[in-house]
Design a protein around this nucleic acid. Structure first.
Lengths: 217, 217
DNA sequence: GTCTATAGCAGGATAGAC
DNA sequence: GTCTATCCTGCTATAGAC
């Protein structure tokens, strides 16, 4: 089960816990299932993490946050050497980082599922997700976009636009089964690049509308 | 607990099951909790529904589907008497039906949460959700939009646009806690009408981009 | 149809050997 | 650190009285 048996038990447990919590949700996974998948002993979870709930929190602190950092890094790299990226460039970099970034397909799906679970049912990890990741990411995007927008663009509308963009990108990731059925497509490289292109275009047009609106006033 | 004690036991159980499954997820809710909330006996679930899983499916069949029909009806009504609705009119009606339609705030949230749970983890209800609701809704929107679009608009791009619109609308409903924190706003009437307006505008611009694209070719 | 009682099992957590 | 054995709680499901 564990890809790297020489990895420390604690790490193997975190890996498998992340995977299982993402796919099934907190309550649907048992400690027994996790330790079995991690090829470790049943008592190991309590030894290393105290209890199940704390293991869940550690998954966010020591796995989820790191993945997020990777995604944001890849986002930043795509824009590196471009001091004044245009709106389409920013959005393309964002969409690529999310939908085709440094994570594997499975990791990406897990990552989105965990985030989405916390957003749907606020738990102890929601504060972590929002304050440490969503809000900074939000601000970063707004900072990048602002030079491309009129000075007096409505701040609240801009925030709603950014939320919409993140929302639909997240949706394309976590709702993969449903999207696949409706579109009649597999999530292969071809479809992913179409998705990225679509998010870029659709969101660019949405933001351009914001610009035009502002001009009229 | 139960608002209507004179309602039949079976109905009270369905009501409470819907609420609890939506908020907590299938595995996190026990039959005990449901029957307690429905002020009925522990054995009632098995008597009326056979087992827990079947109760879950009945929630979709006898509650979720009906709510969907209500939402679509309210969508249709908003467009009634308008034989050729424009894109903004269609989108406004759609956003209003979803974000401020015939359901109560709590019902709306429950509805979105149940759908989103099924999309995230495909279960026996996913087929029901997709084939009976998502796909027809999808086709209806496309049919309404098409007269406003150039004849040779890319079919796949259009489908992706509709998915994006549904995705972000759904996101604003189920991710309410997170959206509230990021925006620093309560989901009151004022914020909801802003959301509706935003979805309409943002999506209209996104679709208009599709039109412009087509012209260039 | 409604209730009590209980079978039968799976879960989280811990104690204590090694 | 790792393992076995075990406690206890809470769950689903059912049998059977009323």
């Amino acid at each position: 089960m564990a890809e790297q048996s020489d990895e420390h038990t604690r790490e193997r447990i975190l890996d498998q816990a992340e995977r299982l919590f993402a796919v099934k949700g907190f309550e649907a996974v048992s400690i027994r299932e996790i330790t079995r998948a991690a090829a470790s002993n049943l008592a190991a979870v309590n030894y290393y993490f105290g209890n199940k709930k704390n293991l869940y929190l550690e998954v966010f602190r020591q796995r989820w946050m790191i993945r997020t950092r990777l995604v944001r890094q890849s986002f930043a790299e795509k824009l590196a050497g471009n001091p004044n990226p245009s709106i389409p460039e920013i959005l393309h970099a964002m969409a690529r980082a999310f939908l085709d970034g440094p994570l594997s397909d499975e990791q990406r799906r897990q990552h989105a599922l965990l985030m989405q679970r916390e957003m749907a049912r606020p738990g102890d990890a929601l504060k972590l997700v929002v304050e440490e990741v969503m809000r900074p990411y939000h601000e970063e995007l707004i900072t990048l976009l602002r030079p491309n927008l009129p000075r007096h663009v409505d701040e609240e509308r801009l925030r709603l636009c950014v939320l919409s963009i993140l929302g639909m990108t997240l949706y394309f990731t976590f709702a993969r089964p449903a999207v696949s059925i409706v579109m009649g497509r597999q999530y292969d490289a071809c479809f992913k690049s179409q998705l990225i292109q679509h998010v870029q275009t659709f969101a660019t047009d949405g933001l351009n509308g914001l610009v035009a609106e502002n001009r009229k006033q």
